[in-house]
Design a protein around this nucleic acid. Sequence first.
RNA 1: GCGCCCGUGGCGGAAUGGCAGACGCCGCGGACUUAAAAUCCGCUGCCGGAAACGGCGUGCCGGUUCGAAUCCGGCCGGGCGCACCA
Length: 808
Amino acid sequence: MSFQPLTQEPEIQRRWLESGAFRAKRASELLPDSKTFYMLVMLPYPSGRIHMGHVRNYTLGDVTARFRRMRGYEVMHPLGWDSFGLPAENAAIKNGIHPAIWTRANIQEMKGQIQKMGISYDWDREVASYQDDYYRWNQWLFLKMWERGDVFRAMRTVNWCEALGTVLANEQVVDGKDERTGHPVTQKPLEQYFFKTTKYADELLACLDGLDWPENVKTMQRYWIGRSEGARLAFDLDIGGEVEVFTTRLDTLFGVTFMALSTEHPVIERAAETDASLKTFCEEVAAVSREERLTSDVKLGHRTALSVIHPFTGEKVPVFAANYVLMDYGTGAVMGVPAHDERDHEFAEKYGLAIPKVIEAESAWDHGILVNSGEFTGLTTEDAVTAMVAKLGDRAGKTTTYKLKDWGLSRQRYWGTPIPTVHCDTCGVVPEKPENLPVRLPEDVAFHGVGPSPLTTSRSFLDCACPCCGRPARRETDTMDTFVDSSWYWLRYLDPNNSQLPFAKAESDAWMPVDLYVGGIEHATMHLIYARYFYKVLRDLGLASGPEPFQKLICQGMVLKDGSKMSKSKGNIVDPDEVISKYGADALRLFMTFAAPIEKEIDWTGFEGIEGASRFLKRITRMVEDHMNTAEPLPAKEQLSAEEKALLIKLNQTIQRLTDDLERRYQFNTVVSGLMELSNVLHDLPAAAPHRGAVMQHALDAFARLMSPVAPHLAEQLWSQLGHAGLCMQAAWPGLDAQYLEADEVLVVVQVNGKVRGRITVPASATEDQRRQAALACPEAQSHLAGKEIVKVVLPPGGKLVSIVVKG
RNA sequence: GCGCCCGUGGCGGAAUGGCAGACGCCGCGGACUUAAAAUCCGCUGCCGGAAACGGCGUGCCGGUUCGAAUCCGGCCGGGCGCACCA
């Protein structure tokens, strides 16, 4: 049978599904000595169509899953849908259809496309976050976290659009206006729910060291967590009360000439009530948009009528409101030491403040020895901090702060998991009872695109009984950030039908941690921090074991077209379906695997690459067609011709290399080049080779299995043609035959002073001394040795090279 | 500004301190064909040479080593992330 992917691939996909070959075992079915492998790809958003980024991601995951199955592992390889979020709601506004209908249709469409790729997902484990048997467990976990004190409520500013009467996400705000309608957007404080992620900041930081993740992702997370050791110190206000600062340089305390407070600091807000010009200043700072803040670092300040008292000198220090002090880091207040801090220096120069030097060091911003610092003069930075903390008593203490923020999970939206709390006039905000879950999204809603979330207008949703006192109460209308959905989904795959718990611990103990997680670099911080945080919470709830969910992470590069990202607006999308309907799934998979190393970008320049992949598959097919099946056993090594032996050596070297590439190196592109090299050698075997039939049968049997992870459809077809009854994907990965790993004679390179001057062939069994003698005798080397003194001869391990060092 | 990653033929890339450019794409020559496509055979880093062969060569400069694309230091260029974090 020739290469006819368009008719053959669907047929083979049907055989796979009927045989249940993709099904993963439950914990109870695993044997004590079963080796398991959990292959996970990032949860996709059902936008409507798959794109080349998905194709690349899923192909590489599938190659690994299929390879591990053939290596005898029990493999978990599931997929689901990140199916809550804004686009569905926008589509509902635009087209007048319910988000659920839009979402369901998209999932169906994309699932069909993925199935055409021949990806070996266990579809019985498919989950979708918009379904209530998924999101009820978001709610259940929320209640558990509430009980443990891991959830709290606090004020936070949001992007508020008065004209639309709604809250907007950061990416919806452009130039301080709603990007859709152009209505102005302002900042408005709102009471919202938070997860206490900072509670795990230290552990999240410490555990990074043990993870087999790309270094740049780990670095990004370390920076994101932003641990900083320093001290807190309280200054007394002249009008009573105090202001606490956080500083990493308590040793510079005698250099303080001003106090800079955030415009949102409570002390400033109170002062602004009686100080009109301060109030104006604060409003001006607040009016600066996010983008402007990011591009400009001009320092602005406003001197208040307040002062604080220096704890050692007793001098009065003026208090400023300043735009460069962030309310949500440290205490929102900074002690200004212009001589030893770059930002404070700029500020002091601008406002004419004194800049007294109190540290002697190489540069102004370095640690050093204290000067002009009273009794602390002469101490080092480190000793001074300790001494000052001791002297200041209750007023100061060493402390650690983080850039990591608590996770604000409230969204004022319809299409998300309802937060399971109730507002009661008597009891306040109280959690819903677990037995009342799920709190379902109401159906009696309309989508206008104006005004608050439809949840706030649905009587059937709003009206409820207080879980504490039973009196009429109002349901919470905030829904959860969709990052909650994606923070534990891989555990639900393990037990998708459990109606008692989000998942059974036996299942997570059997499969966790995930052995390989593949996805885009864009999730380096947010998703991958939230997911790690959730896993630690789940562990502390007794639901999961182990500190970390994802042992190995690979971030695959983007698929580009002519150097830029494929997007609808640019009109440069290459549709995977089109490629499959012309070349077949195997050709696309092969090209995606071969084109570049996994972490690099691929530029889809044209169809040359896919043509090449298709050509290779045709060549392989022809080779099997031209071969006559035989049951004749492989003859002993001594009986084989030189070419036949060479072929078997190449075969075994290829098996060894591919196994290492797939098992240890996760280097997929060289798997394909290895297959191509082997096919070239098979192709070159002379027609008259004495044992051609048996040798080719042996080699092709192995070849079909070696190509099976990358081009599984054609591998099945060839496997059948080669006379095998079962599925190739269920056959064992080829083993190594040690006698064919090395040739009888090996090539040895001869270097003179580091340059290659000759090549000799010696028996594989040659001793070091024999190799040395043969190298020295080699004529090409001789011409470079004549008249020179041999200083030494180096024979590195491996025996493939002799390095001669000469002088004169 | 700070941090991380990456610089190899016309292109994608290979080389796990040991023959730089595997494998593929493009291109060129040939076979088959009335012709074309497909397929098959061959060539293809640069300079010199008819060839044998020689020289140069992995962004640049230096170092370690018998030996460096690979390790170390400095610089140049590109990408990504963070960005007033006290």
